[in-house]
Design a protein around this nucleic acid. Structure first.
Lengths: 216, 216
DNA sequence: GTGCGTGTGTGCTTTGTATCACAAACGCCA
DNA sequence: TGGCGTTTGTGATACAAAGCACACACGCAC
């Protein structure tokens, strides 16, 4: 799933495993939370305890990107957080859009957790002409035929798909055609996308279905 | 995270990797979808194409649990689906509860995707006394102090946590004390739970944050 | 300045997972 | 009934990730 990690400015690193990338936001979050509580230096041991993982793994992960700690001390909380945010591209805001304005899509658009993290939802789309033009949380619902144009105009980099499963692949193809490289997919399928496009699925039912195995 | 896979009836298998368990629901879903479309036999090749994975991996995964296919033919769609559902415990219904009746909790309770898959939400809780007694989607909001009793009375096996981050660990501790072994956590933290308890997190922000890395 | 305690960064080992490749099973057809 | 094309199930192999353990850096105290 995706790679194409070409040249970049200073802090770029080659061939970082995808699992590592997925853990970095965890570190960022833990550091942010830790920043409130007094100490301005943190050790991999402390971080590991908070995140339920081994200190060695944290140090290994960080070492893909540089040497951020000081021996005998640990990591500067503020500085490490800043560095990680920069690596992940979280030191800027990202324009996103939501496609599918049914029940789920409306909940996503109204969800107050995205904006504070720098993900601004700046457009909303639906295929159903009868609701195009309605306003949801301050956003006009647009027709999907406007999508490519709006993506360009508003410099949208991320698509959030909340359409029913039957339309999901088709909508995702549309996003890909519009040049979108990052898709958050709420529809319960494993969509086909070309190399270089990253899709992450949000699927509570799948999670539940794999847990029941352990309840004997 | 979790294991304790003790004796079971016939189809039980020892030491199955967690990743494999997490893929089984994907197979179930693909089989269900495939069942509609004519053919009643499917090969690992076809399944793999649909799920974007190698046929070998699918066969390996299935081989942990038995021999379900016929050489030269493939797998009976209906029968394989049934076997997998049985292995995962999806051939029965599960009672679940939602803790935290804020915006997110209400959305979860109203979400129509759980019941058809056998996950029935039969109780709703909140810590805020001022909303205890209200009705949401036909469920009375109960006080968390009733939780342990209700879990027992209604034979609830799964808890869905939708409280704010500050209360999440505390609520999860309460669930664990009440004997819950499976938790679906919407709060943005990595909770600490004892061995034998399975937690799966739903966190769209984390997913977004790891995707931005690839948008250079 | 020197010595000591602490915690990083990392080569090496171990563990875990995915893939390969082929023997054995099956169905079909002549 | 026997041979052929197909697809499974699985040991062996290759690859990837996690963990270990220690040399080395740093800060502090005296």
């Amino acid at each position: 799933m995706s790679s194409t990690n070409i040249s970049n400015n200073s802090g770029s690193a080659p061939n970082v495993p995808e699992v590592v990338i997925q853990r970095l936001p965890l570190y960022v979050r833990a550091l942010t939370q830790f920043a409130g509580s007094g100490d301005d230096v943190i050790s991999s041991e402390q971080l590991g305890q908070r995140l339920q993982m081994t200190p060695a793994q944290i140090r290994k992960d960080l070492s893909y990107f540089g040497r951020f700690g000081k021996q005998g001390r640990g990591y500067s909380v503020a500085s490490l957080e800043q560095r990680l945010r920069s690596i992940l591209g979280l030191d800027r805001a990202w324009n996103t859009m939501v496609i599918g304005m049914g029940r789920l899509g409306r909940a996503v658009v109204s969800y107050p957790g995205f904006a504070p993290e720098g993900f601004n939802i700046v457009a909303a789309f639906d295929a159903d002409d009868s609701i195009v033009g309605e306003t949801v949380s301050g956003l006009d619902i647009q027709s999907i035929s406007d999508l490519a144009k709006t993506v360009k105009e508003k410099d949208i980099k991320i698509g959030i798909v909340t359409v029913p499963i039957e339309r999901a692949q088709e909508v995702i193809d549309t996003l890909v055609d519009a040049g979108i490289k990052s898709i958050l997919n709420y529809a319960p399928l494993s969509p086909k996308v070309p190399e270089g496009v990253t899709v992450r699925g949000i699927d509570p039912v799948l999670s539940l279905q794999s847990m029941t195995y352990y309840i004997s």
